[in-house]
Structure formats: structure tokens, C-alpha cells
Design a protein around this nucleic acid. Structure first.
Lengths: 204, 204
DNA sequence: GTCTATAGAAGGATAGAC
DNA sequence: GTCTATCCTTCTATAGAC
């Protein structure tokens, strides 16, 4: 990607995460990116909406990689707890400015811009299916993996809302405990399913 | 409350839930409320921000009553599942327009308006403590009640984000299942604590 | 690809009559 | 408390030179 274009997207991602889509002005973006105003419309002929969609997909991909960083096929329970602890640290250390780069925009545009809604939906779908794969690797039954991924991501997103509004990281800890419980439950079911399958094979 | 003022707040609440704070223009509000433009500044000398704060508190109180409707001291697990099922119905029946009236605004203003942030924080605190009381009534240990309430509300908020963005109610079902699990776990701990206390009394 | 300037619409807010 | 008109700012977007 062109250097200036990348700076613009990066600056936009920061601003979206802090203020959302409607709260971020195009002028503020180019200023923050140190980019010429005309460059924005050169790289994004579709204007703010096109830039917004690309930014959503870009930061969605960046954050999606975090799932790969935290879930590496070790103990799923520990990894889940570490994941939420890291989120708690981030939100606190940023003085409750940093949260999810997608959620604010997603809620703002869900009913007002189909282009942007689709972009946020694709990011969430990527996160969910990516997490589900990791969970299966970790011992969760395939049928349980997607609902579990949805629950984990919902807990994270919801806790970010509470934590940022109330300026209190403990919400992410409470959500992390619930996530840990959900993972343990899914692993228990996975272990039972494998035992049952083994017993069935023995009978056959 | 004065009739016109109430109409303005009600219309603002609808618009906030659908488009958020920054996405809603004051002109749109008075138009939607069928109210004279000047009335807005008569009732809310502080302008959009004051109106926004009052709207957040008003719809927060309305939605808080839903907790009392769904959690009436019956079986907590059933009540939790009914609560999430109702949320799923609402979001689907509204064609994924209706979600939480606070979350969008909360994320938008968390770092840009202290007045509005405090309003959203107070609503969330009300919801959490209100739910925690209900959970204790239902058999959850006092120390477990608040974290459980935070987890339940996080699940609901996060699932609303996913459901609206992806136009799929199943996320609320997955979140509801996790909520149900968390409640069952808390009830198990509550029952055990009561057994232990009983045994301790017997020994004494 | 970048510059300056500006159009044109929409935003929040106010004045002053009634 | 409500009416109409309007101010000023900010916003997105474009024009046209370089």
C-alpha cells in the first residue's frame, strides 16, 4: 500500500476507535495523518465512506491477528484468561480511550450505511470463524466452537462498552471470568464427546 | 414532565438507538418529535448535550425496568433465557434496527464528552446493581452477584453489536446460552455456600 | 500527487416578534 | 411557549493550478 494512503488509514483507525465514524471529520483525519487534503480524495474517490470501509477492514485484520497471538493451541482456559487480562490492561493503560476499533462504527452505521455495515459484519465474521477454528484445535467440539466464539467476543465487546463508559477495568475481569467458565464448559463437553466416540468404537 | 419536552426526549431516544449521538441532528429531532425548534432550547438551554444526557438517563431508566419485568424472583436460569430470547425477538422483529439505547452513545462519547459519559456510566451502574440485587434474591452469593451481572450485561451488549452488524439474531442465542451457563454456575456456588453455612451452624 | 481555494450542504445555536 | 428567520461554524467534497 502507498505510504501516504497507509498513514491516512492508520490515522483514521485511531480516530474511529476513539470517537467513532460520525465523530471524526475528514479534516481531522488528514491533519492527524500529516497528509495533504487532496490525497484523501485521490486515494479514496468514494470519500469518507470508502475510506471508512477500508479502515474498518484494515483494523479488523490487525485485531484479528491478536486472536492468533493469544490462542496458539496451548491450554484454552489459560489463553482465554490471558486474553481478557491483556484487554483490561490495554483499556486501563490508555486511560479508557482504547477499546474495540470496530464496535463504535458498527453500532453507528448498522442502519445508516450498508457499505460500512457490511464491512463491520465481515470483520466480525472473520473474528468469529477464526476463533472457532482455534477453539476446535484446543479441544472444543466443532458444533460448540462457533457459539462459544460468539459468546467470547460478545463478552469482550460488551465489557469494553462498560469499561470505557464507567472508566473501570474490573468489568473486563468479570467478563473474563465468564469467558473462562464458558471455555471450561465447552472443553468438558469436548472431552465427553471424545470419550463417547472411543467407547462406541470399542463396541463396534 | 411537560408534554412537549417528553415528546422531544422520546424522539431523541429513538434516534439515538438507531443512529447514535453524532449521527442525530437537532433538526431531525424536533422534526421527528413534531415539536417547534425553539422548544428544544427552551427546555434544554444546554443544547444538544443537555438533551442528550437527559435522554440517556430517561431511556436508561425505561430499559432498567425491563430487568424488573424479566427477573421477578422465579427460576433465575429460566428468566435469563427468556430475557435473551426476548432480546433476540426484538432485534429481529425490528429488522436489526433496535438494540441498546445507551451503548452506541456510550462508545461515541466516552472520550469526547464528560457530561454524556457520566450519564451513560450512571445508567450502566444502575443496571448492574439492579440486576445484582435480583440475582441475590434468586440464590446467588452476594460476592458473585455483581460480577455475574456485569457478565450478563456484557453478553447482551456485545451480542447486540454482532447481531445488528451481521443482521443475525443467532448471536443473541449464543450469548444467551453463555449467560445461562454463568447463572447456573453462580447458583451452584450459592447452593454450596448455603450447605456449608448450614453444616457450620450444625457443628457449632 | 500535491497545492490552495472554495463551493455547497448540514450542523448547532440564537434573536426577536407574538 | 411557540413562531420564523437567520447567524455562524463545521462538514464533505470539488476545481483547477502546479
Amino acid at each position: 500500500m502507498h505510504e501516504t494512503k497507509e498513514r491516512i488509514v492508520g490515522a483514521t483507525a485511531d480516530l474511529f476507535r476513539h470517537q467513532g465514524y460520525n465523530g471524526t471529520a475528514v479534516k481531522q483525519i488528514v491533519e492527524s495523518a500529516g497528509a495533504p487534503f487532496a490525497s484523501l480524495y485521490h486515494f479514496f474517490p468514494g470519500g469518507k465512506e470508502e475510506l471508512g470501509a477500508e479502515t474498518v477492514r484494515w483494523s479488523g485484520a490487525i485485531y484479528g491477528q491478536l486472536l492468533d497471538v493469544f490462542f496458539q493451541g496451548g491450554d484454552l482456559v489459560t489463553e482465554t484468561e490471558t486474553f481478557f487480562a491483556a484487554a483490561a490492561d490495554t483499556v486501563r493503560d490508555s486511560d479508557y480511550v482504547e477499546g474495540c476499533p470496530i464496535a463504535t462504527v458498527a453500532l453507528e452505521v448498522a442502519t445508516t450505511s450498508e457499505v460500512l455495515r457490511v464491512a463491520t459484519a465481515e470483520v466480525f465474521e472473520d473474528w468469529i470463524s477464526r476463533a472457532a477454528v482455534r477453539f476446535v484445535d484446543g479441544g472444543v467440539e466443532p458444533d460448540d466452537a462457533r457459539p462459544l466464539a460468539i459468546a467470547i467476543i460478545s463478552l469482550l465487546e460488551g465489557a469494553f462498552v462498560l469499561a470505557r463508559a464507567m472508566r473501570d477495568e474490573s468489568h473486563l475481569q468479570a467478563a473474563g471470568a465468564a469467558a473462562s467458565l464458558a471455555v471450561r464448559d465447552a472443553l468438558k463437553r469436548g472431552a465427553k464427546a471424545r470419550r463417547d466416540a472411543k467407547a462406541a468404537r470399542r463396541r463396534a
